[in-house]
């Protein structure tokens, strides 16, 4: 552990298990995951198809419930919360970026971004200020009044990122955020995410199968068959060096199952 000890834990998962199916035909997707994410970390989760990446993200992000185990986010056990509490928790504390953006087609960029704080009692002036800050970081200020169908995929994903950040969440979950983007847009977005992580200190957890994308992270966790296979820390390495390390692990891990770049 080369992280500084002053950082507090944002997320702490202990022995998280998740199984699907009926009693006679149980399929265990997560087989006891232990994971600790510190404040300000940018964690990547990698693994071959079917290794449980998305399930883990969904469980950690309170969208799905674990079958067993405890998940503490800022010392609150979310596994024990009721549905309504979970919703509120998600709305206040978490942000989401999805592979296919999941913007509401009928809303403009600005309306989409402001959605998470629409139920809060924040002053309009403060909201405007916050919106302005975030869109200028993301470089989408000009698009405020455009509809999703009028902008490019990269711009849509930036909008989605804006929506994930507007309410200053404790943690942002990203599920294959670059999956639907071309490489230029992807690297732009990842650069911005890295920037936000460093400068604003936002904790990010990103699921991806793209080694390039995960090379932007501080740490990459590899999953295999529902358990943690290994972890890599970037430390002071350059992105290129870290990328190579990731590739090496992947080669050992997956063989044919690894999605090629």
């Amino acid at each position: 552990m080369n992280q500084s000890t002053t950082q507090s834990t944002v997320l702490h998962a202990q022995n998280v298990r998740k199984s699907y199916g009926t009693r006679s035909n149980v399929q265990q997707v997560l087989k006891g995951i232990n994971l600790r994410v510190l404040e300000g970390e940018f964690v990547g989760i990698m693994g071959p198809s079917g290794s449980g990446k998305t399930t883990l993200l969904n469980v950690l992000a309170t969208i799905d419930r674990p079958t067993e185990g405890s998940i503490l986010i800022q010392n609150v056990d979310i596994a024990k919360m009721k549905d309504a509490e979970l919703s509120l928790f998600r709305r206040d504390k978490l942000g989401f970026i999805f592979q296919d953006y999941n913007l509401l087609d009928t809303l403009t960029v600005k309306e989409n971004i402001l959605l998470p704080i629409s139920l809060g009692k924040i002053k309009k002036k403060d909201v405007e200020q916050q919106f302005h800050t975030i869109t200028s970081i993301l470089g989408i200020e000009e698009l405020a009044h455009k509809y999703p169908h009028e902008i490019s995929g990269g711009q849509k994903q930036r909008t989605s990122a804006g929506r994930a950040l507007i309410h200053k969440p404790s943690m942002v979950f990203a599920d294959e955020p670059t999956g639907a983007l071309d490489s230029k847009s992807a690297s732009d977005l990842l650069g911005t995410m890295e920037d936000i992580n460093k400068k604003q200190g936002v904790t990010i957890m990103m699921v991806t199968h793209d080694p390039v994308a995960s090379s932007y992270c501080n740490r990459v966790v590899f999953l295999k068959d529902g358990t943690i296979y290994s972890e890599l820390y970037r430390g002071d390495k350059t992105r290129q060096a870290f990328f190579k390390d990731i590739l090496n692990v992947q080669a050992v891990l997956g063989g044919d199952n690894v999605d090629a770049i």
Binding site: I63, D83, A84, L86, S87, L88, F89, R90, R91, D92, L94, F96, F98, N102, L103, L104, D105, T106, L115, P116, L119, R163
Partner: peptide, 16 residues
């Protein structure tokens, strides 16, 4: 449906 799914994921509950 997809919009509602997204809204639920963002943390809006059924009542909202």
């Amino acid at each position: 449906k997809q919009s509602y799914k997204t809204l639920r994921q963002l943390g809006f509950d059924v009542k909202d």
